[in-house]
Design a protein around this nucleic acid. Sequence first.
DNA 1: CACCCTCTAGAGATCTGACTCTAGAATGGG
DNA 2: CCCATTCTAGAGTCAGATCTCTAGAGGGTG
Lengths: 193, 193
Amino acid sequence: MPRLVHDTSTILDAAARLLAAGSADAITIAGVIREAAVSSGSVYHRFPNRAALLAAVWNRAVQRFHAELTPLFADEPVAAAVALGRRTVSWCRDSPADARVLLAGVGSFEPAAWPAESRSLRDADQARWDQHIRRLVTDLKTVTGRPTAEILLVVVDLPYAAVRRYLGADREIPATLEDIVERTIRSALTTPH
Amino acid sequence: MPRLVHDTSTILDAAARLLAAGSADAITIAGVIREAAVSSGSVYHRFPNRAALLAAVWNRAVQRFHAELTPLFADEPVAAAVALGRRTVSWCRDSPADARVLLAGVGSFEPAAWPAESRSLRDADQARWDQHIRRLVTDLKTVTGRPTAEILLVVVDLPYAAVRRYLGADREIPATLEDIVERTIRSALTTPH
DNA sequence: CACCCTCTAGAGATCTGACTCTAGAATGGG
DNA sequence: CCCATTCTAGAGTCAGATCTCTAGAGGGTG
């Protein structure tokens, strides 16, 4: 049994690098072969087709992100919302490649073409995540009295927006951004209205 | 002199429709030909290459957006910020195709490959817009005492984030979103800290 | 040492899409 | 009515990308 010469993560890293240099469609098999210095045989030994490779890139990034954030749901609702926002920012700073993957959105990864295996993996992940979010949203509704759409905007979309400006332009995420995000979340959730 | 049988906007509309159905890379010449029921000769008579077509799609959407919003900078700073946020939401509801173009970001349109003409057109537009934004930001800094990054987050990125959730998933933008955006902007700018 | 079995290398087959090119349709002016 | 000019049609070329296929390298096992 010959050892694996190339690690699968080498290939996924190369793909993520290609994405960072352009869009998700910049992830071509030919490009990965060049970037990872690997033969096409190697790639196709691991992934039946391009869609499966894209799926792996996406799922890996999402799993890492979720692994980092899920513990934070344990806090009190407002504290959890703030912690999620802060951690989203710091995670993006520490894992820019994965962050760029999430920034592109699943839609860029042609999920319609994914093999069943990849799809169910994603579905399971997503279901768990959605459940956490739903629970947090209902808790925040009772605590703050805001409508669902407002809570989603402040808790989910706002940290994403904060980070997008810098990731998209390949600029450093400022050190003060966590504080800014925290202040904005707090004022939006606790201002009387 | 034979009349133009196809309007150029027909071609750009078809391209925008293709983008809405997928990513910006879904805008292929072959696709536009199908979607607009036009021959490749017609397309290449107007646009020297695909990059020029992409540039035209982008620039048209941006010009429409800017035309809609620029008058609003005339207000008092906080009022202007609120009005910009509200109008961004309503514009996206009324012009979903153009909104999807902006949502994709210039990066998707391969600006590096644009002809000089398209590029300078965009640069001029962008410079005018940036000047308005810069002026508004400095005004808001003196009025609210917030740092630049915080103002940009609240004024520029937040309305974008509010709308992204719905445009990206092809869902109706809720009628209450303008109010939600306004409340969030106000509380972020006027809460003492 | 012989034998497997996993993994790799890389040459093509095939497809898709961008772009070129030429013939000609349509219309206004002389 | 003819010509010039503008625009259109669509076949054809070329580049690049996905995927297939076969030969074989490399290391563990009997």
